[in-house]
């Protein structure tokens, strides 16, 4: 098969459009993670993130996180217009590094919970939530 100049241009444009869209969103998710970890490596496991598999109403999605040995946990919603959700800092009187919240999700997406451990290392957990009705209005 031979490509004409026009085909090649069209292909290039299509590829650029495809690549451009998600990378813009992913970049802000990565920024949000890097802002918390300072670019440190994140290990999987050691964090429990409980979220419903299917959320009918994206306006209130109950989630809970816990990470034994963590001093702080950041929650990131990868598919929201702004991936920031919350950062939980545990004080000396927190009985366990766990908390439950209700969050808004714009669409079906992955949620990340990243925990900063007492020794300065980072751990993460992810959960996919299917959202029937998005929770960001419009």
């Amino acid at each position: 098969m031979q490509f004409t100049r026009r085909d090649t241009l069209a292909l290039g444009l299509g590829a650029a459009a495809l690549a451009g869209m998600p990378s813009a969103v992913l970049a802000s998710v990565e920024d949000e993670i890097a802002d918390f970890t300072g670019g440190a490596e994140i290990a999987d496991g050691g964090v429990t993130l409980d979220a419903p598999e299917i959320a009918e109403n994206g306006n209130t999605v109950p989630i809970s996180v816990s990470a034994p040995g963590a001093v702080a946990i950041r929650i990131v919603a990868t598919g929201n217009p702004s991936p920031k959700v919350a950062t939980i800092n545990f004080g000396p009187l927190a009985a366990s590094p766990s908390a439950a919240l209700r969050i808004r999700l714009a669409k079906t997406q992955d949620i990340l919970a990243i925990a900063r451990m007492a020794d300065g290392s980072f751990r993460r957990a992810a959960a996919t939530v299917k959202v029937t009705i998005g929770g960001c209005g419009g």
Binding site: N59, A86, I88, P92, A95, A99
Partner: peptide
């Protein structure tokens, strides 16, 4: 609790209406 921190949460617009928070304290 008596001046010592239990929890400190930074919240963003992705937190639902009527924010509900549950946690454990000693």
């Amino acid at each position: 609790f008596n001046g010592q921190s239990v929890i400190d949460i930074t919240m963003e617009p992705a937190i639902s209406t009527n924010p509900y928070i549950q946690f454990e304290a000693t």
